[in-house]
Amino acid sequence: MTQRSHQEAPSDSLVALLQPYIDGELDEAMSAAALARLDADPELRLIVEEQRAARSALRAAPRESAPAGLRARLLLDLDAVDHERAVVAAPTRSGWPRARALLRGAVVMMPAAAAAALLFVALRAGAPALEADAPAPSLAAVDPATDDAADRASPVLPPLDGAPRVLGAAPGAAPTGVTLVGLGDAAAPSEVEAIEYELGGGRILELRRPALRASREGDEIRYRGDLYQLRRDPRGRAVVVFIDGVVERTLVVAALDPRQIAPGSEQRLLLELGHRLRHGSAR
């Protein structure tokens, strides 16, 4: 048998014999052959020892677990994918059922349209001209360009004079009312904390996590003197993010009561809650 320097790499055929021997992937006959080869070659024995030492070091290293917050965020992402697919799939209804639905709608709407036209004519004839309509509530009830958006109160604002009520707070667990179907009861403690609030007829989810990275997504606005980021999540829900000391706090509308909250005012609701959380009047 030829002796080789320890620095010299073994040939591919030797590696093909040694590696499966080290990892226990040889059958008995091949394993015996490899062992015989090792007995006769101290250099090879040294290589095997090194390989085993490296493998033992890796096996002895502690096994980390995924943060529980990752699981919760992932499930929210899967919800978003489901929602996205449902939206895409909805218009695919076609053919006769769709035409029938349109006809049914037309039959219902025709008398209503006639009544509206009559009313319009009567008003035009007998009443003074109407004032220009108030602007429809926009999706962004808060203008990012203003220095203090609270001064531009929308006429559809909910009553916000009550203190927010905390509905549920469970470190690392999904809050009640949020679809996290895969999150079991045994969620491990996490550095992400989820809390759910009720405020002005809306249920709002808050996620807190260490502010490790500066997130620059969305529009940045100033509300009552503090900075917030406004954006929409993949499901189209309003999201407000702000940094509170070393904590990144994300507020997202989980549910709205349309009787109390007009469409388009959710961002203002989130900003108001953010302001109260920041200044200690929420809990």
Partner: peptide, 22 residues
């Protein structure tokens, strides 16, 4: 293995492992 050796502390001694059966 080389890097562990170079970091001044040798890796844990190889455990007396029997090859895993097929």
């Amino acid at each position: 293995h080389e890097r562990l050796k170079a970091s001044s502390a040798s890796p844990p001694a190889p455990a007396a492992e029997a090859p895993v059966s097929l």
